Amino acid sequence: MDEAFETKFGISLDTVTLNDNHQMVVVATELDASSERINYLNEHAQLSINAMFFSAFEDNGNRYLSRAWMIDPDEPTKPIARKANKEPWNGEFYASFGDERPWELARRLGFIAGGGAAWYSKTLSMLSEGDRIWVNIPKTGYVGVGEVIGERCRATEYHFDTENGAKTLLELATPNEYPHLYRALDDEEDNAEYLVPVRWLYTAERSQAFSEVGLFGNQNTVCKPTASKWSHTVMRLKQAWPIGGGV
């Protein structure tokens, strides 16, 4: 939720006050024994929940409706306890490299990519030259860490330095090797394939991806994690990989 909110609105979720005075009210003529645990939830679980009872009666042709609260709403309520599961962002980005994209090509040339819809490509714009990214292939594991060396651009327009001069992905990758790139050729701008060039500090083959229980994962192409799992993930990767060497 934190990463999705920041991607959509451009601000951190923890800086916004949501449902500050949110309260649940159960309206009934009576409550059974199990429902009376509402009082327990207020006192021990610190949930802002109450019950209101209505009674209707008639007197000399006049109809009346009375109400009564289970817990006096004018009494001050206890603040809802929130779990402290966030940490300050460590300045390093998470990147998800889609399983349908050619990791070995990205590893060799130096890039990450996203596309097919604006939701998948727009988060690449969060990256700037000098940023560090840790790359994960969903359901496979972490496969690389690198330093961003350029801004987001259309994957068909970026030129890579090769032994034979500057080449685009259309000149370096076949449709079978990178079908997602070729499928997006005729798409409008939002649905096109985009990339960010990267200088790799360390990479691993897909078959050697680092994966274990407790590592951070996210469906966004790029995000700035603040979950406690992120610092743990970076620590484990630094322990597992000889960071600082080449590919």
Rank of each mutant, 00 (worst) to 15 (best):
F97C: 00
F111G: 01
G116A: 03
T140Y: 05
D99G: 10
D161L: 07
H44M: 04
T140F: 03
G91Y: 10
N62H: 12
P102N: 11
F93C: 06
L109K: 06
I133Y: 11
V148E: 02
N90R: 10
R108C: 05
Q46L: 07
A68S: 15
G146V: 09
T140C: 02
E104T: 14
E100K: 15
D161I: 09
E58M: 08
E157S: 10
T156Q: 07
A81T: 14
Y94L: 04
F160E: 06
F54K: 02
W69D: 09
I71K: 01
A28R: 11
S128Q: 15
I137Y: 10
W89I: 06
I80K: 03
P138E: 14
G116M: 06
E30V: 00
A81L: 08
F160G: 00
N85M: 01
D59T: 14
G150D: 08
L47Y: 11
N85D: 15
A81E: 11
F57E: 13
A68D: 12
L41G: 00
E36Y: 01
R154C: 04
K139V: 08
A68F: 03
R108Y: 00
A95R: 01
I149N: 03
A118F: 00
A45C: 01
F160S: 04
S125V: 03
E157T: 12
A68M: 04
M52K: 15
K83C: 08
G150R: 09
N62P: 02
W134C: 02
E58C: 10
A113C: 08
G115V: 04
E147D: 13
R82L: 09
K83E: 12
G61E: 12
R101S: 02
T123G: 05
M70T: 04
K139G: 00
K78R: 13
R82M: 01
W103K: 04
E58S: 14
A28N: 02
S121R: 09
V148D: 08
K139A: 13
L31C: 03
K86L: 12
A95C: 15
R108I: 04
G98I: 00
C153E: 12
R154D: 03
L65S: 07
R67V: 11
N62S: 12
S125N: 14
Y40H: 03
A56L: 00
T156P: 04
I112N: 06
S35T: 06
N85R: 11
A28M: 01
G115A: 06
I137A: 07
